[in-house]
Design a binder for these strands. Structure first.
Length: 569
RNA sequence: UCCGGGGUCGUUCAAUGGUAGGACAGCGGUUUUUGGUGCCGUUUAUAGGGGUUCGAGUCCUCUCCCCGGAACCA
């Protein structure tokens, strides 16, 4: 299932939670004859996001751990909002996350069985057709602490209900004209049990069944029954379905099931700081053009995280780490990012890239017989964390690009980088000492002058003298131009909408900064689409899957200097 | 208002009647040809009251706070 499994058996054996304990107990009591089957049931009306990743991880890993199966079931009971493009998107995203369902099914596969069972409930006097309008039915449902009142249709004889239901299916009535309701208890303290709707009339085009049906089952009527039909044992869902559980059980108790009766267990959904996971709001961001599309790297969708360079394994590790519980919680986005950094630190190749270029001229750089500046090649380590990644050759000359942030005329305390009179190391090349700088009419530094020490070739001094800083650089003659997108949090507030109730009030519309004409080392021209590399001292960057010279910042490196600056104000 | 679910460091997850621990974040140090990584150290928590017990985060009880539930959404 997981493409690469980095957890040791020991760790996974130690890891336990209330869901796994229930499964253990079911195994011990032989509740399902030793079977464990879970399902991930997305509605195909949007794309998967990190919140889904938690559920997917639970469903699939649980099945794997207990030698069971996990299937993907599209909960396609509402033709108005669903689409095949989402089906395909979800399939692809799930696959990228590293999971292969044991089967792919659709709730719509069960429409015929569901309908037959509905007729059975009608015949048994446990369901009835209600032809009142929506507002009336809603008003009759009562409220918290207020009992409901029974529908005048409640005592319609079964034969009449059956006739009406058949004619509903046959398309004799208009959309919304009537519904089929379960006959449970209008006084129940749990509102879900006050005669819930099972079927509604809707003449939308269903993405799979086309126009075969004009009545569609509601979530409650479809979900548990679908679980039972396909042999799911452990039906895992999020906390908001807690009050639906008695209804889930009630329906299943009334029916002749082909399998053992599954049961529902709820857990807390994943929330992240600075993030929204509401599908509706996400869709609005896309529709309003606040972001570029469903895969805009600032979004928490799986396709966005992928494009941004988040490794699927890091997301899986994160999910394993946070575990599963019933406590509502909101994890800091920094925790997810730390898993991303840990993974990328291990795997990403190091490269040098100058995002905001400043010219550095080495005034004592030698020329050859023809008077041309000489070019040196240095072998630089690709990843100090992994010797097998070897080295690459990088060209060095007397005209270089360095980062604007790496030079200051009047450096404050604790600034270790280049400034007049100071010596620094150019990574893998030479020590250089700043001898001067040039400015334009506005006083902006346009060029830094320095002298190099030929004895420090390769980056170390034979006399053992130290420098406080090592800087990245790119040879001006060999540099390649690239576009780099930097991303800040899409929402400035930890909890978007907490202050005003509207998350969009916390939107940072300048959360993307696109830098053009960045100067990067030639080897970056060989980066493969989607590959993530580390720009030394800056962060991890993913090459866009379509644009060959466009990098997205996955996540920055931890930045001690930024912390110091913040403290100094 | 009624029903249900929750409340442990700043955040989050553990501790299953027996020393409240880890991670992230922070801070300090150390190593370092990335102010990265690694390593070491360190600050901070059981919502409140009563009870049971030799012993309570854990069991009982009252109070407080947070979340969810009244679509022909899922």
């Amino acid at each position: 299932m997981a493409a690469d499994d980095t957890t040791t058996p020991d760790e996974s054996a130690e890891r336990t939670d209330f869901v796994r304990e229930r499964v253990q107990q079911d195994l011990a009591t032989d509740r399902f004859g030793g079977r464990v089957q879970t399902r991930f049931p997305p509605e195909p009306n949007g794309y998967l996001h990190v919140g889904h990743a938690k559920a997917i991880h639970l469903d699939f890993e649980l099945a794997r751990e207990f030698g069971g199966t996990c299937i993907l079931r599209f909960d396609d009971t509402n033709p108005d909002t669903e689409d095949t493009s989402f089906v395909e998107g979800i399939l692809g995203d799930l696959n990228w996350l590293g999971y292969e369902p044991d089967d792919v099914v659709y709730a719509s596969d069960y429409f015929e069985q569901l309908y037959a069972w509905a007729e059975l409930l009608v015949t048994d006097g446990k369901a009835y057709v209600d032809d009142q309008d929506l507002d009336t039915i809603r008003a009759q449902r009562g409220g918290y602490g207020k009992p409901g009142v029974e529908s005048p249709c409640r005592d319609r004889p079964p034969e009449e209900n059956l006739d009406l239901l058949r004619r509903m299916r046959a398309g004799e009535f208009d959309d919304g004209a009537m519904v089929l309701r379960a006959k449970i208890d209008m006084q129940h303290e749990n509102m879900q049990l006050r005669d819930p709707v099972m079927y509604r009339i809707r003449r939308g085009h269903h993405h799979r069944t086309r126009d075969a049906w004009v009545i569609y089952p509601t979530y409650d009527w479809a979900h548990g029954q679908s679980d039972a039909i396909e042999g799911t044992t452990h039906s895992l869902c999020t906390l908001e379905f807690d009050s639906h559980r008695p209804l889930y059980d009630w329906f299943l108790e009334q029916l002749p099931l082909p399998n053992d009766r599954p049961y529902q267990t709820e857990f807390a959904r994943l929330e992240l700081t600075h993030t929204i996971t509401s599908k509706r709001k996400l869709a609005q961001l896309v529709a309003d053009g606040v972001v570029d599309g469903w895969d805009d790297p600032r979004l928490p969708t799986l396709r966005a995280l992928r494009r941004r360079g988040y490794p699927a394994s890091a997301i899986r590790e994160f999910c394993a780490y946070i575990g599963v519980a019933r406590t509502n919680s909101r994890h800091q986005i920094e925790l997810l990012e730390s898993f991303v950094r840990t993974e990328l630190n291990r795997t990403a190749q190091r490269r040098m890239a100058v995002l905001r270029p400043l010219r550095l001229s080495i005034t004592n750089w030698p020329t050859d017989d023809a008077g041309e500046p000489i070019v040196e090649q240095f072998d630089i380590v690709n990843n100090p964390e992994n010797a097998d990644d070897g080295t690459r050759s990088v060209a060095f000359t007397g005209e270089l690009w360095i980062e604007q942030d790496d030079f200051m005329v009047d450096p404050p305390k604790k600034f270790f980088r280049l400034s007049p009179g100071r010596e620094v190391r150019l990574r893998g090349a030479y020590f250089v000492t700043c001898t001067g700088f040039e400015t334009d009419d506005d006083g902006n530094v346009t060029r830094v002058l320095a002298e190099y020490d030929p004895a420090t070739k390769g980056g170390s001094a034979p006399d053992g003298r130290k420098v406080k800083s090592t800087m990245h650089w790119v040879s001006a003659h060999h540099a390649v131009s690239a576009t780099v997108a930097l991303y800040e949090r899409l929402f400035t507030a930890e909890v978007p909408g907490e202050a005003t109730g509207d998350p969009f009030d916390d939107l940072d519309r300048s959360s993307r900064e696109v830098l053009v004409d960045c100067k990067v080392e030639a080897a970056l021209g060989d980066t493969t689409p989607g590959e993530v590399v580390q720009f030394e001292r800056l962060g991890y960057f993913a090459l866009d899957p379509r644009d060959p010279m466009w990098f997205h910042r996955t996540v920055g490196l931890r930045d001690e200097w930024a912390n110091i600056q913040k403290r100094q104000g």
